[in-house]
Amino acid sequence: MFKNVYDWIDERLDITPIWRDVADHEVPEHVNPAHHFSAFVYCFGGLTFFITVIQILSGMFLTMYYVPDIINAYKSVEYLQTQVAFGQIVRGMHHWGASLVIVMMFLHTLRVFFTGSYKAPREMNWVVGMLIFFVMIGLGLTGYLLPWDNKAYFATKVTLEIANSIPVLGPVMKELLQGGTIVGAETLTRFFAIHVFFLPAVLLILLVGHFIMIRRQGISGPL
């Protein structure tokens, strides 16, 4: 059944080269854990992507119940976590996913660093990778405030205070992130917009670039 549908489409759009090019590449021996188990470190990139997909999906579903204003934010989070079926699971996925994706990304960074895979010709891929790292940290920072409970409020206040201590740009950046003079209603909606729209957009662009480069240049050779 699928075969015929696939052939019917393939005749018309010639899609085979597209996914062949993406998926049908030989996996060299030095990255294959089946040959020597130390190659498991090469899995961290894939796992980071897998958890990023989970984060994006769980994040999207959370916005079905979450309300980003200071009166309802907490109540909506408490409501979705206690009253809605599986609410605790989905919020748990997003919460733990956030920490896990940063751990996996960190391990991935270390693997690339210690195997010297950032050496020429893959410098750009490393730079894009680091930008992804900073975007993820930004996502973590803005996402932390959204439940609008005491821990989140005071943590964000501290972080903005730190940003404020930068001599020239500090106060401007703080005012911009706060959307005003205090950490309040404007901050929450602004952090929500950054967390749900701006940073994910940047992240997706960087990820596409990262994947294209990895496809074009292939995995770095054995040490």
Partner: peptide, 25 residues
């Protein structure tokens, strides 16, 4: 996710005395 529910404190209250702690990273 099943065993450890995501933590949720009390609604943000600027006058609350809370020891501020950023996220672990």
């Amino acid at each position: 996710t099943i065993s450890e529910p995501a933590p949720l404190g009390f609604p943000a209250d600027p006058s609350a005395s809370v020891i501020p702690m950023p996220d672990w990273y």
